[in-house]
Amino acid sequence: MRLFEYALISGVLYGLFYGFIGVGLNLLFGVMRLVNLAHGDLVVWGGYLAYSLTTSAHVNPLWAIPISIPLALVAGFLLYVLTVPRLRRSPDTETSSLILFFGVSQVLEALATMKYGTNQVTLPELGNPVTIFGQQYAASLVASAALAVPALALFYLYLYRTRLGLATRAVMANEEEATASGVRIRLVATSAFMIGLAFAAAAGPLATFMLGGINPTTGGGLTITAFTIIIIGSLGNPAGTAAGGVLYGLASSLTQAYATAWTGMVPYALLLVVVLVRPSGLFGRRVRVA
């Protein structure tokens, strides 16, 4: 019973963090149907930034979050300008983007290997464990969940309380109708791309704690997890992304407790079940399928 309680609480805490990981991808995939296979590698680069900060300046690794955001915005703008307009001209943007971003992910991995080597890199723990109902949880786990909540809230405010967010949602629902009604697609797309990348990089330091360290090959698995979460939680729905993350976190921690050998299969099995049973995700209205 104690174990079940632990699995539930840590599942929810992990899940909120996973929701945070999904946010940036949700924007890119939702708005432009860009299959960003480099998402996990961007998160990992955010983690490496935190690592550099702690080893060279000996500051709290969480400072990497505010520092990474402007960097990611600039990088996002450059990457957008260099690739997306060309990609959008391709007859099958979705497929082309998948292959393109696979290439980008290889490049990011190669650069990480050159700069940081192949060894696992970790960050110093944030503090003493936190006691919840008499059981101990890592400070970094609690902090990650606590930071994920405002991040998800910001995502919500952006989509529902700003003009640009309104336009973004219009494009997500139907790009042609949105264009016809005067939405400036390019502005929406550029900002979605930049903001998406910023969210990814900001999640990096937390990912370094949650994954027990990072190395250049960590990104691949993280990307798949992020896709699972946004597809479960439906595109363009911040609450859905959070819920998708929590569902994933719970599934993962419960299998750890009761079916340990199968933990690796959780994201894939969940993704398959969701796309087959309800391709629009658990919290979505509609999505384009076959």
């Binding site: 995939f29 497929t95 994201p267 993704l271 796309v275 087959l276 399928v289 076959a290």
Partner: peptide, 13 residues
């Protein structure tokens, strides 16, 4: 039954 990236990711899974 799926299409585009959904199909691609589902086969991957």
């Amino acid at each position: 039954r799926l299409s585009g990236a959904y199909f691609a990711l589902a086969t991957l899974a």
